[in-house]
Design a protein around this nucleic acid. Structure first.
Lengths: 195, 195
DNA sequence: CCTCGAATCTGATCGTTGTTCAGATATTGA
DNA sequence: TCAATATCTGAACAACGATCAGATTCGAGG
């Protein structure tokens, strides 16, 4: 049986999970998390209010899926940033820039990617992808440090840099005209701290 | 006319705004922001659901008041931390520790103090108190740096340290057994970056 | 002590939300 | 072809934030 537009509108959307993630991210970007609504997402996807629950269980499930998608985008950008240079320090600067840029370009995703309280931290895919982005930065810092630097020092530097990037973005402390200088200061200083 | 317990329960609570702030912070600590409810706060304060709106307008108003109270607590702790030592670096370490400890001891306040989207950023008292805590750190960093360091460098270091402390706390990346070492690494490294 | 305006709180109501559930509809594979 | 499965609907429910008229209490000025 062919699935024409009519029947696809009523039953069997076709790719509802993906659509819900996209519309959800869009709505987050427009309204922010405090005015986010599952019913509005369903409305925009053209399905009944109860439809999303069949795919994501509850609101936490959909938000976790959106966040997971966000971390995948971030990882792709980080990898591209790292590959764009051979200079260790320059690689890390680019990775941090990728972080800030990803949040700017996908504000809906960024609004919840680090909102641990709203997400299902037990979700396997989410854990994988979010840890992976952190590991990319950690590995890059290890490569940029002298070989005799201890593991805990690498850990401290990674956590500090990661937390700083998140904080600068979440608290809206980073302005476009000084973003580059601020990131360079943080990266250069933290790498120097590992000598 | 004496205000006995009976009449005070029905009308004219006595100190409702203060009670709402306390009960609100308590509820935030118990449930987190996602399950926070104005009606439940009113319920715990023993007043009708509409009562809070007369003092704080809406939910944003009450949350802003709680956040403002949190920044006042933070400022007090920061000042005490700074006064506890004469060593510049040690002062800053203590101020950062005060930040982490305040969030740990007042989790209800901490849950919203930096949730800019949920607060009324235009509120005068909130602006004053939140800016003041940031300025305390900024001033301390300036005092710890050589006199010829330019203002933008101080600004970068302050923002990075402030954002890092917020990120470490918000992302739950800081564990009790390594908190001190992690904070010391960040402070020492950032101060060294100002030389 | 009295009075009257101002401050404070109630109670009812409205539209909206997230979630659940039985049942309807479409797809798929044997 | 047909049954098993996946997918979606529609109605229902309790709870929410917000609004508003009106009831109650307070407090300053006579």
């Amino acid at each position: 049986m062919e699935t024409d537009a009519q029947s696809r509108e009523n039953y069997h959307h076709g790719n509802l999970p993906e659509t819900l993630i996209q519309e959800g991210a869009q709505l987050l970007a427009e309204r922010g998390i405090e005015r986010f609504s599952m019913r509005e997402v369903a409305r925009r996807a053209g399905v009944a209010a109860a439809a999303p629950s069949h795919h994501f269980g509850n609101a936490k499930g959909l938000l976790t899926a959106i966040a997971t998608d966000g971390f995948q985008r971030l990882a792709a950008r980080q990898e591209a940033a790292q590959a764009a240079s051979t200079d260790r320090e320059e690689q890390i600067v680019a990775m941090c820039r990728a972080y800030i840029e990803t949040c700017a370009e996908a504000p809906g995703h960024a609004a919840i990617m680090f909102r641990v309280d709203l997400l299902d931290e037990g979700d396997e895919r989410f854990r994988e992808r979010s840890f992976y982005t952190f590991d990319l930065l950690s590995t890059a810092l290890r490569a940029a440090a002298p070989t005799d630097v201890q593991a805990d020092q690498i850990s401290y530097a990674t956590k500090t840099l990661w937390a700083a990037m998140h904080g600068l973005q979440a608290l809206e402390m980073i302005e476009a005209d000084e973003a580059d200088a601020l990131i360079r200061f943080a990266v250069r200083t933290l790498i120097a701290g590992l000598q």
